[in-house]
Amino acid sequence: MFTRRISILVGHFGSGKSEIAVNYSMRLARDGLPVSLIDLDVIKPYFRSRSARDQLAAAGVELVAPTGDSFYADLPIMLPRVRGLCRQHDRRVVMDVGGDDAGARVIGSLDDVLDPDEIEVAAVLNFNRPFTADPDQAVAMIRGIEGNARMRVTGVIANTHLMQFTKPETVRSGYENACECARRLSVKVLAVCVPSVLEGEFSGDEFESKLFPISRVIRTTFAADTDSAGGDSGVPEQPPAPGFAPAVEGRYGVRKVGPLFVPAAMPDEEG
């Protein structure tokens, strides 16, 4: 999906930057390219690309993230290796930047070492997220990011999904919105991300942009809550009238719940 040496992923937090960064750098490594993934997320403490440390190592991707105690911190740490990689012309580099304009500030400090001809700056867009629910909001978010990053976004990535509730239509409508953003920003849609289980739902030429199948790597160890929406949350019956002695069941409003989650069979993300 990227053609230049350095791919910089920016966007709203929770838009999918880390998952795309991990999937993309693992794919580059599988193609035999030397690749470094730089985790520049100084915004949130969990679910960062560094959480995929073991999978990245197994795939042969160099993970650039703080080590020791600082691995777990959400502090603005810029490792010397980051500036080194900007000048090291024999490696592909994927930068996973923290969310929103606040997270983008960290790459603004690299503008003296980044060669504009070597970089692509992609804004990841999920229109099911708050604050990027439509093209107006998404473009405003991108403008804020560009200001703090001191660089222009050169493409967008359509990554609209709803986790286990993602339908082909979810992807299609997200692509339409991404195209609208790209038009307003005068850039291209670089790729359309689809959950790998839905890849077969799309023909290769359905979109003008490439399909990029995503297999989630950064995730919880338990399974998705497939039955969560619209259910009651165990509200007990209205309190009985004074003096009325209800049966135990009624008194305690015992919530009978069938199986809520599908079984988990996924790697542990501890670390």
Partner: peptide
Amino acid sequence: RNEVRVAEYFTDEDYDLLVVAYGS
């Protein structure tokens, strides 16, 4: 008396062990 909330899983069936846990 009135505000106990609890979710039960498989307690209608036969079981040899009860697990109690909350949250994630």
